[in-house]
């Protein structure tokens, strides 16, 4: 299977939209316009988009506290997401979830998750639903290197394997769990961990959209075909701190700058498709402009949008009258 021209445009558009979204949130947070905690995904775009390009409405994903990229890649409305991050009434979650809990189950997005390691058991359930209801769907948990050390993640590897679920565990290893390096915190290797549970497991360079897209294709096809779960270890880089406000002093001084200059996933994508003559620079420039304008519009509207009111406080706790 090959990527069509439309696929390539779509992939670039999604990645660029994520980058613009995160950069804008960074700026707005710095300006004091966004309350609470935000954790930004900039630098890791090829992972979310490389996997989600293979998914459709049958499929579900669970994300992490660093969830904006997964949401956009799975088709959540970026305008409603921005409203949500600003805590507005017309946010994707009515202003009740915020950055760490953005979800849209109608899109198969089971939520960013404030609990590290919260997602893997949930996608075992989504995979069980797909298997039981015979939808042909698959379910993916995006897990950080921090989450990879949680017991819930190991329990989910085991459960997915013994139930032979159409589940995929994507370990997005950006090198740091908060301040702590994954080179210290992870015993053994992610790939060996997966293989230890009897799952096919591979490592992939998260700066290379095409490499991610290819291993994603294999894992997703295997899952759809009844071949059970897989693990993919994505090596990547987060450009901002753990959360906004974190100066990331624990990183080497030039670490991010050097990566941006040599391995930025959007830059590499652009090089690959233009050098191969698959897309021209003008088309990509147009996407850049559109994405920037779109996010600027989202921010402007989000700032002007109304806040929820007291009457919203007690709604949505239960489905039935309580």
């Amino acid at each position: 299977m090959q990527l069509s021209r439309d696929d390539l445009l779509q992939a670039y558009r999604r990645m660029r939209l994520i980058r613009e979204f995160e950069d804008a949130v960074h700026d707005e947070f710095s300006a004091g316009n966004i309350p609470g905690f935000v954790h930004l995904y900039a630098g890791e775009e090829a992972s979310a988009v490389g996997f989600c390009m293979h998914l459709d409405e049958r499929d579900a994903i669970a994300s992490t506290h660093r969830g904006h990229g997964h949401c956009i890649a799975k088709g959540c409305d970026e305008r409603a997401m921005m409203f949500e991050i600003f805590g507005k009434k017309d946010g994707l979650c009515g202003g009740k979830g915020g950055s760490m809990h953005i979800a849209d189950l109608s899109k198969g997005m089971m939520g960013a998750n404030g609990i590290v390691g919260g997602g893997p058991p949930l996608i075992c359930g989504a995979a069980l639903s797909a298997k039981t209801l015979k939808t042909g769907g698959v379910a993916i948990a995006f897990v950080g290197d921090g989450g990879s050390n949680q017991g819930t993640t190991f329990e989910s590897y085991n459960l997915a394997k013994v139930w032979n679920l159409p589940a995929i565990f994507v370990i997005e290893d950006n090198g740091y769990a908060e301040t702590t390096s994954s080179s210290w915190s992870v015993a053994g290797s992610q790939v060996d961990r997966g293989k230890g549970f009897g799952m096919p497991a591979v490592q992939v360079d998260g700066s290379d959209f095409f490499a991610v897209w290819e291993v994603a294709r294999e894992a997703i096809e295997r899952a759809r075909g009844g071949g059970g779960p897989s693990l993919v270890h994505v090596k990547c880089m987060r450009y901002y701190g753990h959360f906004e406000g974190d100066a990331a002093t624990y990183k080497a001084p030039d670490e991010v700058a050097r990566y941006k200059a040599t391995k930025d996933p959007l830059m590499l994508f652009r090089q690959r498709v233009t050098e191969a003559g698959l897309l021209d620079g003008q088309a990509l420039d147009a996407i850049d402009r559109e994405a920037k304008a779109r996010i600027e519009q989202c921010v402007a509207e989000a700032k002007a949008a109304p806040l929820p009111t007291e009457k919203d406080l007690l709604t949505d706790v239960y489905t039935s009258p309580y």
Partner: peptide, 25 residues
């Protein structure tokens, strides 16, 4: 297929039940 024995893995299967409930079962 509808009566699922689980390993001894309460986080795993309780979480799976929650995830399954959110996705149609």
């Amino acid at each position: 297929d509808r009566v699922l024995d689980t390993p001894i893995t309460e986080s795993g299967f309780i979480g799976a039940a929650v995830g399954a409930a959110a996705t149609g079962l």
